[in-house]
């Protein structure tokens, strides 16, 4: 995988599909890379380190088969090359316990997955505005 602008770990192919459309809707040039489980995520993260190419934003689903989103988050924050890439926990859960744990592990934001395409477009647009345009100095 060539390092994308947004790296996403999402086990639901439907959601990944919709997300892909939403990203293109926000900005056609934006690239999205998706893996479906924690193991592939770790593998891909290692790849980024090897190729010295960081994604600009990581979207992490919390509930994943095998390794959980929090495990992946931990790995990211432990990897010096990646530790400053903004990681947004992207989950259906809005359970306060999950939110708390995510921040403890170093998440930069916790976003409840918007339902529906329109909402998702709005969400991605806002994320893009914040993390790509206004906070350019981060990258």
């Amino acid at each position: 995988m060539i390092t994308p602008d947004i790296f996403c770990v999402e086990d639901d192919p439907d959601y990944a599909f919709i997300l892909e459309h939403a990203v293109k809707e926000v900005k056609n040039e934006l690239t999205l890379g998706v893996v479906v489980d924690g193991m592939s995520a770790i593998e891909q993260l290692n790849n980024f380190v090897v190729t010295k190419q960081r994604p600009k934003l990581i979207l992490l689903d919390l509930n994943l088969p095998g390794l959980s989103g929090l495990d992946v988050l931990k790995k990211i924050k432990e990897t010096p090359f990646l530790k400053y890439v903004p990681v947004i926990l992207f989950s259906t859960s809005d359970n306060p316990k999950d939110v708390k744990a995510s921040y403890e592990f170093g998440a930069n934001a916790f976003v409840t997955k918007p339902s529906g395409y329109t909402n998702l477009v709005d969400c991605v647009k806002s994320l893009h505005d914040f993390w790509f345009n206004q906070n350019k100095n981060i990258n």
Binding site: D14, I18, Y117
Partner: peptide
Amino acid sequence: TSIKSYTE
């Protein structure tokens, strides 16, 4: 969510 998103 999928049903809603695909429809939209």
